Amino acid sequence: MPERRIAILGAGPVGSTLGHKWARAGHTVAFGVKDPSSERAQSLRAHLGEHVLIGSPADALAMSDIAVLAVPGEVVEELVTTHAHLLDHKIVIEAANKLPHIQKTLSTKKWADHEPLTSLSTLQAHAPHAQVYRAFNSYGWEPFADPLYQGVQADLFYCGPEGEARTVVEQLITEVGLCPVRLGDVDQVEVVDDVLRLWVTLALLQGKGRDQVALKVLTR
């Protein structure tokens, strides 16, 4: 598969896990973070080596063809509006979830109706020429780090447009070790987010464990 140039905005557990796997697969990975000199950013550099760029979001986006939004969901809108010109015309994967909604669910043990987990509409409005996908949001970081469950490869559910960009996104999913399952175009984003709600219910609300649960479609 060809080498890709990937900007990962955010250096938390999800972003760093994905970046580690994609760098190991031979891609050029750049992390865009608020403070490149922070302890977390420097720890990431020590782990991944000097060949991985760690800079500002603008630095990372300027050298990429693919952008992965792996920041807390509540900062996505500001990030998108600030860097819309650098996101436009790219493949953009929104992996962020609005954490306050999930935290409220964990405290009340009940999902509230109609609370969006994504800022996809903001992204579409400000970067209308981007090819936008919703992926890598339906689990915690643990299934990305270890996607095999009793020897069975977990599925990764996503949505986004058909075409060449879909092939790229599925390549990236496969390189993480997951099996890509497309649920439709971006109008199916709520279906993808419902997969997250199911995973949170099983892994966290029912206490089965973040590293013990993933999902698989069985067919015949």
Rank of each mutant, 00 (worst) to 15 (best):
M1Q: 09
E3L: 04
I6P: 01
I6W: 05
I8G: 05
L9M: 08
A11L: 03
T17A: 15
R24D: 13
R24L: 11
G26R: 12
V29A: 08
V33K: 03
P36C: 06
S37C: 05
S38V: 14
E39Y: 07
H47S: 15
L48F: 10
V52D: 09
A60S: 06
L61P: 07
A62R: 09
V68Y: 01
P72D: 10
E74T: 10
E78G: 15
D88A: 04
K90H: 14
K90E: 08
I93W: 08
I93T: 03
K98Y: 13
P100W: 05
K104M: 02
K104V: 00
K104E: 14
T108K: 04
K110I: 06
A112M: 04
D113I: 01
T122S: 10
L123R: 02
Q124K: 14
A127D: 06
H129A: 09
H129I: 01
Q131S: 14
R134L: 15
F136M: 13
N137H: 08
S138N: 11
Y139H: 08
E142H: 07
P147H: 01
Y149N: 00
L156I: 02
Y158S: 02
E164I: 01
A165Y: 00
R166T: 04
R166G: 00
T167A: 15
V168D: 01
Q171G: 03
Q171K: 02
I173V: 14
T174P: 02
L178M: 14
L178H: 01
R182V: 03
L196C: 07
W199P: 03
L202V: 11
L204W: 11
Q206C: 09
K208D: 07
V217A: 10
L218K: 08
T219D: 10
T219G: 03
